[in-house]
Design a binder for these strands. Structure first.
Lengths: 190, 190
DNA sequence: ACACCTCGGTTCAATGAACGAATCTACGCT
DNA sequence: AGCGTAGATTCGTTCATTGAACCGAGGTGT
C-alpha cells in the first residue's frame, strides 16, 4: 500500500529536543507525568483526575513505561494490581516540569495568586523560579519538595478523590493513597 | 447545536502546567520556539527548517504572537515583510527548553555524542545540565549562549539554508541571516 | 507591457488521532 | 448466582493535521 506512514514523529529533525517531544509532546503525556510527581500511581486515579479517555490513558502509560519514564510494578496479587511509578529517568523531568509550571503561573496565572505552592520540605521555604530553595541556596530534588494548594486554586472545580487528597500538603513522589505495600525504603529524592 | 465544543484545552485542570501546555503543548509549537532561539525569524525559514504544513505554521505563529511569546514586527517596507522574534516572556522559556533538550540528549541521544553544543559565549565552557556555566558558576541567559553542531549531528539529513547556516557557531537569539535592519541595540540577554 | 518569481499566506479533501460510551475480562464479595 | 471494582479494549463520531493547490501583493527580467 506504500503508506506514507508519517504523522506523529518529527523524524526529519536532527535535534534532541525533537526526540524528547516525540515521546513527551503528545497530548496528555506531560500531565500524566505531572500526576505521577503528585503521587498518583493507579490507572483509576489518573483516569478520574485527568478526565482523559481510557484508551488514551492506556496508550500513554504503555508508551511511558516502554520509554523507561514510568515503571509498572505489582503491588498486590490477590486481585492482581499494578501501579505506575516514576523511574530515575522520569524523576529527572522535574527540572523541565517545574520551570514550565512556574512560567504558566507567571504568565497565565489565576488572579488570586499561585494555584499550587512548592516548598523545601526540610525548611518550609517556597522554591524560586529555578526550583532552588532561597534559604538553603541549593537545588531541591522532587522528593524533598512539599506541595499544597495555593491561594489561586479553584476549589470546587474538581471533586474526585485525587483532587481531594491533593488538598492536604504532602511530598512529591509519595503515593497519595497508602496502597503500596513496601519498597518505599529506596530513596525517592533523586 | 449544543456543541460539546471541547477538544484542545485542558480546561478542567486547575493547574498552571496545564495552562502552559494548552498554549505550548500543541504539535510543532515548541519546535517553533526552539527555532526562534536559534535565530530563525521569517515564515519561510521556519517552513523549510521544520517541514511543517504551511497552515499549521501560520496558526502557531498567530497563537504564539497572540500569547505574547513572539512579537511580529516589520523589518522592511518595499515588499512589506515581517519577522517573528521572541519577547521577554518567550525568552524565559529557555529554562524549559534547555533542560528538556539535555534530557533528550541523555536518554534518546545519538550514538556519536551530543547533536548540538551549547557553551557560555564569554568563556567557551560548555553548559551543564541545568544551563549554568561550570567555570563561571552562574546561570547563563540565552543571549550569552553560543551554539554549534556537536559530534552526534547528522550531517546530510537536512540541506535547507537554515540548516546550513546552523553549521557555523553563533549566538542564540541573534538572527541567522542579516535581514534585520536595526533594533539589535536592545539587550537580548534576558 | 508581460511573464515569471518570491513571500506569506488561505482553502480543501483525505487521513489519522482523540473522544466518550459501551463492552469485556478477571477477580472478590455476599 | 448476582453484583461490584479495576483495568483495560472496541468502536462510531468528532476534530486536528497533512500536503497539495490556489491566491494576492510586490518585485524582477526582457
Amino acid at each position: 500500500m506504500l503508506t506514507v506512514a508519517l504523522g506523529k514523529d518529527y523524524r526529519r529533525q536532527d535535534c534532541s529536543l525533537a526526540k524528547a517531544l516525540e515521546l513527551l509532546g503528545e497530548r496528555w503525556t506531560l500531565l500524566v507525568v505531572r500526576d505521577a510527581f503528585l503521587g498518583v500511581r493507579r490507572y483509576r486515579d489518573f483516569l478520574v483526575h485527568l478526565d482523559i479517555p481510557r484508551a488514551v490513558l492506556a496508550e500513554r502509560l504503555q508508551t511511558l513505561t516502554g520509554a523507561g519514564v514510568l515503571e509498572r510494578r505489582r503491588y498486590q496479587d490477590s486481585p492482581p494490581r499494578d501501579e505506575y511509578v516514576l523511574t530515575a529517568r522520569g524523576r529527572e523531568l522535574w527540572t523541565v516540569l517545574y520551570p514550565l509550571t512556574r512560567w504558566g503561573e507567571r504568565h497565565l496565572g489565576s488572579p488570586g495568586g499561585p494555584r499550587r505552592i512548592y516548598a523545601h520540605a526540610s525548611c518550609g521555604t517556597e522554591l524560586d523560579d529555578a526550583g532552588a530553595c532561597p534559604a538553603c541556596g541549593c537545588a531541591v530534588p522532587p522528593g524533598d519538595v512539599e506541595t499544597r494548594p495555593g491561594p489561586g486554586a479553584d476549589v470546587g472545580l474538581r471533586d474526585d478523590p485525587v483532587s481531594q487528597a491533593l488538598r492536604r500538603p504532602h511530598r512529591l513522589l509519595e503515593p497519595l493513597f497508602g496502597q503500596s505495600i513496601a519498597a518505599e525504603n529506596v530513596s525517592l529524592s533523586g
